[in-house]
């Protein structure tokens, strides 16, 4: 689904976040990316989304080289990004409206897209009720709790039937109980849909709960991907099992060992 080949990336400050970085995400896998702040984990996600461009190397998504935002990739950010002046329902419909606005041009919307109002209505209703917010459809974002806003943002993305779901720290602004609830929601969603997903997090437990595979990033520069297979994902109730705690411990060790060797984050001037 995602292939990264010999990626080189830095922002204008010149600090290389990735060099000769290669790895792949297969269709149907649920990945998490974890690392300290400034390690480039959100940058990598934005590269997948086509919102950042590689300096060198190549990123393929769905078999095509990615140069701009891809219509069938869904993106959920930490800051829900809902329109403050639109109700939950209208926010959920926003992506559909944008697609209708452009028509099936293959650039802003999938080329083979069919416009079907009934079908759209059904999907909006389906995801609103699946996420448990169909009773809030007439509310504005300012009237919702943070968890409800994030549910609306997820509904808005899923309505577009993405084949890849990217999430950047989607639950890190939420209180623990709400966060766990949404992790459960995403677990059962992955189980049902088998959608390929990549979730960026700085929370070790969340990485283990959501990721069948966990990519661990370090302070720049990242060259060799550190990947952990994780069969404990998808079962938040195992969180107190010794196995789960060991896995978190292991990740903590990997994260700890990397921080001393890499270059410190922040701009470095030659």
């Amino acid at each position: 689904m995602i292939e990264v080949e010999d990626l080189l990336f830095h922002y204008r400050d010149g600090v290389e976040l990735f060099r000769d970085f290669s790895f792949r995400v297969n269709r149907g896998e649920a990945w998490t990316i974890i690392g300290p702040s400034g390690c480039g984990k959100s940058t990598l996600l934005f590269l997948f989304a086509g919102l950042n461009k590689p300096v060198r190397g190549k990123i393929m998504v769905g078999g095509r080289r990615i140069t701009r935002a891809r219509p069938s990739t869904g993106l959920v950010l930490q800051d829900h990004g809902l329109l403050p002046w639109a109700t939950v329902e209208n926010n959920t419909r926003l992506g559909l409206k944008v697609r209708k606005f452009y028509g099936p041009d293959g650039k802003h919307s999938p080329a083979g897209m069919q416009l079907n109002e009934d079908e759209d209505d059904k999907r909006v209703n389906h995801w609103l009720s699946w996420l448990g917010i169909d009773n809030l459809r007439e509310m504005y974002p300012s009237q919702l709790s943070r968890g409800q806003r994030q549910r609306a943002a997820i509904a808005r993305t899923l309505v577009l039937q993405p084949d890849l779901l990217l999430m950047d720290e989607p639950f890190s602004a939420l209180d623990a109980p709400i966060r766990e609830e949404l992790q459960k929601v995403m677990n059962s969603f992955h189980l049902q849909s088998g959608l390929t997903s990549v979730t960026v997090t700085h929370d070790i437990e969340e990485a283990v709960v959501l990721g069948e595979k966990i990519l661990v990033l370090h302070d720049p520069c990242n060259c060799q991907p550190v990947i952990r297979e994780n069969h404990l994902s998808g079962n938040i109730d195992k969180r107190n099992s010794p196995e789960f705690i060991d896995r978190c411990e292991e990740l903590r060790d990997i994260l700890g060992s990397g921080s001393g060797t890499g270059r410190a984050g922040g701009p470095v001037f030659p």
């Binding site: 989304a49 935002a69 950010l77 990004g81 926003l94």
Partner: peptide
Amino acid sequence: KELILSVKSLGAG
């Protein structure tokens, strides 16, 4: 910026 980015991610130019 997040608002603009997330609307862009829905396909908006």
